[in-house]
């Protein structure tokens, strides 16, 4: 029984270990699986949408074009509803976030052992590695590195939008004079550091909430799939199927939430309070 417990723990730990770059220095421990899967899925998105855009007809659209148009229209209508500034960046940005996050989340649908097992087979027979040392995590959004990479990029865009809308001076002024506004010069100077702290917290809370929300959902989903995989194989579907079906909602919702909050944050960034 103890051995079985140990092996279950091993199984979980093995599944939650990244395929790391074995090197020293700055790149040490670089998550190669997150990198490659996100890159490939990014190309899937760009390739599919680019292909459809290139072949798009202004007449009656085919199935694929119709599907792509549906997504683009959805994103566009959300932007029109929430974002009142003018920007060429926000549309493509939101579309990319939605579809890319959706695709990366969708990796959760694949059987949790499928790709890691294939990787182990390749590693074992192709490169003569010990299968126990072949690690692969297929859901890039369950890696906090990727979600933070995205949300910090969004933070940079937010700051960029603020500066573009208000100017460098206007932005810095806003950092120092809001949310607490004073009439006199002395009071303004006294309140400036307080305002700065509040603004910094507000600004930093955005990427943290964005990335941790997505990471938490996907990590928990993946972990539960792993736990379900520990059940006897004939019983797995009892829990696995409902969880997978529920995941259709989570995957879509998390992608949508990430996109929607990005739009809202950018909208706040360009608005004058």
């Amino acid at each position: 029984m103890a051995a079985e417990q140990l092996s279950a723990t091993d199984y979980i730990v093995h599944h939650l270990t990244h395929w790391r770059l074995q090197t020293d220095g700055f790149w040490s421990g670089f998550h190669l699986d997150t990198f490659w899967f996100s890159l490939i899925l990014g190309f899937v998105f760009v390739g599919l949408f680019g292909y459809v855009a290139r072949k798009a007809t202004s007449g009656v659209p085919g199935r694929l074009q119709n599907f792509v148009e549906l997504i683009v229209e959805m994103v566009d209508s959300q932007i029109k509803d929430a974002f009142h500034g003018k920007s060429k960046v926000i549309g493509p940005l939101s579309l990319t976030i939605f579809v890319w996050v959706f695709l990366m989340n969708s990796m959760d649908f694949l059987p949790v052992d499928l790709l890691p097992t294939i990787a182990q087979l390749i590693g074992h027979y192709g490169f003569g590695m010990d299968p126990h040392h072949v690690y692969l995590r297929v859901v890039p959004t369950a890696d906090v590195n990727l979600t933070f990479a995205m949300s910090l990029s969004v933070l940079l865009v937010i700051i960029g939008f603020s500066i573009k809308a208000k100017g460098v001076v206007g932005w810095i002024k806003e950092l120092l004079t809001k949310p607490f506004h004073a009439e006199g010069l002395v009071m303004s100077i006294i309140l400036a550091p307080v305002n700065l702290v509040f603004q910094a917290i507000e600004l930093l809370a955005k990427p943290i909430s964005l990335s941790l929300r997505l990471f938490g959902n996907m990590y928990a989903g993946e972990l539960i799939f792993i736990l379900i995989a520990l059940l006897p194989f004939w019983a797995q579907w009892v829990l696995g199927a409902p969880w997978a079906i529920f995941h259709i909602l989570i995957v879509t919702l998390q992608a949508f939430v990430f996109m929607m909050l990005t739009i809202v944050y950018l909208s706040l960034a360009v608005e004058d309070h």
Binding site: Y11, H14, F109, L110, P111, V112, D113, L114, P116, T117, Q120, P131, H132, I228, A229, L230, L231, P232, F233, W234, A235, Q236, W237, G240, A241, A244, I245, I248
Partner: peptide
Amino acid sequence: MELNASLIGQAITFALLVWF
């Protein structure tokens, strides 16, 4: 990690998901 019955269980789950 070697191939085991767990993969079959996951395949069943996946098939159910596809069916759904």
